[in-house]
């Protein structure tokens, strides 16, 4: 039931809902993703109102252990990207429940 939405599906949807050709939609979407990636590359978080924030976080070096073999190894210092959904997005994906069961 749960689908995987690929770029192709998104481009088709855009093409159907707005007046741009598939090719233009694809270029537009790729440019959008490109801007996001460049911003993160330049260590800048991306905040999209009503959607969420892509945040860059620094992780320190630490010692990891293979749980099976117990062999220790070093996990190096690195940057990771975290996404935090906005309140608005969380409200759209979490269907509103009646106030009744909130109080129980």
């Amino acid at each position: 039931m749960n689908k995987i939405i690929s770029k192709a599906i998104l481009v088709n949807h855009l093409n159907e809902t707005i007046g741009l050709s598939k090719r233009e939609c694809q270029i537009f979407f790729e440019t959008f993703i490109d801007i996001l990636m460049k911003s993160l590359k330049n260590k800048k978080d991306v905040k999209i109102v009503n959607f969420g924030i892509f945040k860059l976080r620094q992780k320190n070096e630490r010692v990891g252990r293979n749980p099976k073999t117990k062999i220790e190894f070093k996990i190096s210092k690195r940057n990771v990207v975290k996404f935090k959904a906005s309140e608005f997005l969380l409200n759209t994906i979490n269907p509103v429940q009646s106030n009744l069961d909130e109080k129980s």
Partner: peptide, 25 residues
């Protein structure tokens, strides 16, 4: 409008439980 549509499409699919996969990103 196009950017809005992209974001709306993301949200509506997430609310259906769908997964959004964008190569490279």
């Amino acid at each position: 409008r196009t950017l809005e549509k992209i974001l709306q499409f993301f949200s509506s699919n997430l609310s259906k439980g769908n997964r959004i996969e964008i190569r490279d990103f």
